[in-house]
Amino acid sequence: MSDSKNPDWSCVCAVADLPDQGLAKFEVAGLTVLAARVEDDVRVIPPFCPHMSEPLVESGLCHGLTLTCSKHLWQWNLKSGEIQGPAEKPLKFYPSEIRDGSVWIDASSELVYDFDEDEDDDFEW
C-alpha cells in the first residue's frame, strides 16, 4: 500500500506484526527489507549484512539495541546504525515512521551497501 499524497512512501507492516526482539522480513514496493522494533520506534534496513551480503534475517541476532551478524560477529547499534565492536561499515536505514500502528518507509530508492570499497571494479589488469 502506498501513500496517496506521497507515492514514494509505502506501508511495510503493522507494528503488531513485528516480534518483540529480532528482525522480520517484508517485501514492499519491489524491495526486500527487514524491520525491527527499537524501543517505541522501528527501524527498517536492507536485508543483507554490509560486510559480505549475509542474509540478516537468518544471521542477524538482536539483543537490546544491538544487532549482531553471527557470520563474522559484526555489530551495530540498531537505533543509531552506528558501528559496535569489529564492524567496519554502519547500517543503513530506510526513512521510516509509524502511522496509526503501521510501519511506513520511503521506498523511492533501494538502499545498497558498497561492497567495492577498494574501487576494484575499476581496476585495470
Binding site: 539483543h63 549482531t68 553471527s70 560477529l73 555489530q75
Partner: peptide, 23 residues
C-alpha cells in the same frame, strides 16, 4: 545451534571478542 548459543552468550553480556568458533 551456533546462532542460538551466540545469542545466549551476547544476552549474558559477553563481548563478541570473547566468543570463539569455527563455522
Amino acid at each position: 545451534m551456533l546462532n542460538s548459543c551466540i545469542a545466549s552468550l551476547l544476552s549474558s553480556g559477553l563481548p563478541v571478542s570473547d566468543i570463539r568458533y569455527d563455522r
